[in-house]
Design a protein around this nucleic acid. Structure first.
Lengths: 356, 356
DNA sequence: CTGAAAGCGCTTACAG
DNA sequence: CTGAAAGCGCTTACAG
C-alpha cells in the first residue's frame, strides 16, 4: 500500500498558494514570508527579494480575510438599510445620503458595504457584514437590530431615529420642516390644500411607524391647528415615493377635487406633481402652488424652481459617518446630533389666484 | 510570587466573549457551542438550549470574519470603482448601474461592497475588499488591477472595457450609439453642430483612454465622415459631466458661436444645455436641437422630452452581476456580452429653423 | 537576521 | 449524543 509523501496538499493549481507554500519553496519560515510583506525592514534585502520573487512566481498574495481576522479590523463601513439594494440605489435621497457617508469614507480610506435586509430581515443581515461599524438607517433604538448590534459590541450610529441615552444618533427636525411648509402655504392664503404624502408600506404601518414621516405629519397637524383647522380639513393622499406615482395621483385628484396648493412630503412626489400640472395645462404658481420636501439637487433645476423644505441630506450622511468613526476610535461619547430644516422659498408658490 | 490561574484571559468586559468562553461556562466543548449555532439537530434539545442560554447571557455571537474565513466565502459582491465614493454616488449613471447590480445581489442574498481607489490607486484597494468576486468598472484587460485579480484567483467581470480572451466582460456598443445620434442630427439638416463632450480628466488622458468615451468619439467621427465632413468641421467642447458644467458651457458657446444642434455625450450635460437654452429664451427644438446620451430616467421627464441614445444601464449592471455569479459558481465560461444602443427620438430635435 | 510557537475565532470530520 | 484535534491563513512577540 503506497503512502502519500506529504500530509498537507501543496498548491495544486486549483487552490490558492498559502504563506506555507511560499515558505517551503523559498526555504524560509512562514514568519519570514509574512515579514517580507508586512515588515520588510526586518529582513535582509536578499532574503526579502527572494521571498517576494517566489511569491510572485507562485502567485501568492496574503489572504484578505485572514488578515482582517488577525488585525481585528476591516477598513470597511457598513450601512444597514431598511430596503433592498435596488430600491435604495433608485432613490435620489439615498444618493445624497451616501454621498455624504462616502465623503468621509474617502477621507479615511474605507470601503462602503451596503447591507440590505436578508430574507426581509435587517436583523438577519447583520452577521453577514464584515465591517468596523454600522450606520443604521431608519430604526428606533428599541428595535431588535439595535440590541443585536450592542451584543456584538460593534460601534453604530442611528440615523432618522430619535435621541436615546447611550446610543449615537443623527436626526433631523422633520416636524419643524413640515410645519414651515404648511404654514407658508397657509400664510399665502391657501385653504384648498392637498397633502401628497408617502405611503409608509404595510410593514411599517404594522409596527407603528415613528420615523421622519410621522414627525412630518405631526408638523403638518400643528401648522393646521395653529390656523384653526386640522388634518380633517385637507385632503391627504398617500402614494409610494416615485415621480410616476406623484404624477398619476396629481392627475387624479386635480380632476376630481382640485386644490390651490399641493404640499408634498417628498421632492420626488413634487416633481411628479409639477409634471402632471404642466400636462394638464395648469400654470405654477398662478393656478396651483406646489411645495416639496428634501431639496434634492433637481429642485432648483425644476421650472418653476421648487419651493421646498431643505434638509441637509449630505451633511446628515457626513455627520453619521463622522460620529461612527469617532466611536470606532473608541470615543464613547454617544452624542446626538439634531440637524435643522428650513423652508427654501422659490418660484413654485404664490397667493391663490383669486379668480380661480 | 503569585501565579495567574488561567493562561488565556477570560472575557474581561472589554473584549468580546468567544466560543471558548461559552464552552467553559456551559461545561461543554467548543464544538458543542458551534453545533448549537450551526447544526442544532446534532445536539439534544436540553444541551442546545443551555448553550444558547449561556451564550445569550454572555453576549456571545459567532465572529463574522472567522466564519467567513472558515467558510471560504463572504456573501458579498465587490464593485471596483475608478472614482471616489462621493463622486460615484453623485452620478446618476452609477445609480442606474448599481440598481442593476443590486437587483441581482438582492436575489442572491448578497451585500454590495463599494470599493473606491485607495490613495488614488484601484490596485491598492483590492487587498482590502473581502468579497467573493469583483465587478470592475472602466478598466482595460491589460491593466495591473486585472493581473492582480487574476493572481488572487478571485472571479471578476470587466464592464465598459473590451472583449478579451479568458476574461468575462460586458460592453456597450458606444460607437454605434454616438454614430446614430450624429447621423440623426445630420439627416435633419444641421451643419452648425457643437459637440458637448466629457472631459476625461488628466489621469485618463495620460494613459491614452480607450473606454466608452473614445468609442463614442469614434462613432461621431465616422458619422461625420459618412456625410463628407470631419471632426474639424464641428465645435468640440469638453467639460466635466455635471449639469452645472453643461449649463455654463452652453451659455458660453451659444453666445460666441451659436449652433443649431448640440450633440452631447451624456444626458447630464444635455440637461444642463436645455436649462441654459431655456434661460437664454431659445426654444427647443425650434431654435436649437439637443441630443443626450444614456437615456437616464429624467430624459423622458424633461420638457421637451429629450432625444437621446439609450444604453440599457440597469441591464448592464444586471448582466455583469449575473456573469459574476456564474463565475463564482465555478462556471469558467468567460463570456463577452455586447449590449446594443439605439437612438430614442423624442421632442428635442427637429430640422433647423431655416429663418434662424 | 531567522525560526518555532501561540493565537486571531471559528468549524467540521472523526472517533468514541 | 459528545469531545479532542486539525485546520481555514495569517501575524507577531519571543527566543535564539
Amino acid at each position: 500500500m503506497p503512502t502519500t509523501t506529504s500530509g498537507t496538499a501543496p498548491s495544486d493549481g486549483r487552490s490558492r498558494p498559502t504563506a506555507n507554500d511560499v515558505a517551503k519553496a523559498a526555504g524560509v519560515s512562514r514568519s519570514a514570508v509574512s515579514f517580507a510583506f508586512n515588515s520588510p525592514e526586518k529582513l535582509s534585502v536578499g532574503t526579502r527579494d527572494r521571498i517576494l520573487g517566489v511569491a510572485k512566481d507562485l502567485g501568492y498574495v496574503p489572504n484578505t480575510l485572514a488578515r482582517m481576522l488577525k488585525a481585528g479590523q476591516t477598513q470597511s463601513l457598513g450601512v444597514l438599510l431598511p430596503q433592498n439594494l435596488a430600491r435604495v440605489m433608485e432613490n435620489p435621497y439615498y444618493s445624497r445620503f451616501l454621498t455624504g457617508v462616502g465623503q468621509v469614507c474617502d477621507e479615511q480610506g474605507y470601503t462602503l458595504l451596503l447591507t440590505p435586509p436578508l430574507r426581509d430581515s435587517m436583523l438577519k443581515a447583520i452577521p453577514y457584514a464584515a465591517v468596523d461599524g454600522f450606520i443604521v438607517c431608519g430604526l428606533e433604538h428599541d428595535r431588535g437590530e439595535v440590541a443585536e448590534l450592542r451584543r456584538r459590541g460593534i460601534p453604530f450610529v442611528l440615523v432618522d431615529s430619535s435621541p436615546h441615552e447611550g446610543v449615537s444618533s443623527v436626526d433631523v427636525d422633520d416636524e419643524g420642516g413640515a410645519y414651515e411648509a404648511v404654514r407658508h402655504v397657509l400664510d399665502l392664503g391657501h385653504r384648498r390644500i392637498t397633502l401628497l404624502s408617502i405611503d409608509p408600506g404595510p410593514e411599517r404601518a404594522e409596527r407603528g411607524y415613528r420615523g421622519p414621516l410621522a414627525r412630518r405629519m405631526a408638523g403638518v397637524a400643528r401648522a393646521l391647528e395653529d390656523s384653526g383647522t386640522g388634518l380633517d380639513d385637507i385632503e391627504i393622499i398617500e402614494v409610494p415615493a416615485t415621480r410616476m406615482d406623484g404624477f398619476k395621483a396629481t392627475k387624479r385628484f386635480m380632476s376630481s377635487r382640485p386644490a390651490t396648493a399641493i404640499v408634498t412630503m417628498s421632492d420626488i412626489l413634487a416633481f411628479g406633481a409639477v409634471d402632471a400640472l404642466h400636462d394638464m395645462g395648469l400654470e405654477i404658481p398662478r393656478d396651483v402652488s406646489v411645495t416639496g420636501y428634501d431639496d434634492l439637487p433637481d429642485a432648483s433645476w425644476m421650472r418653476p424652481r421648487l419651493t421646498t423644505v431643505r434638509q441637509a441630506i449630505t451633511t446628515k450622511g457626513r455627520t453619521a459617518a463622522d460620529l461612527l468613526f469617532s466611536a470606532i476610535r473608541g470615543e464613547d461619547q454617544h452624542p446626538h446630533q439634531l440637524l435643522g430644516t428650513h423652508l427654501i422659498v422659490r418660484d413654485s408658490t404664490a397667493h391663490p389666484h383669486t379668480a380661480a
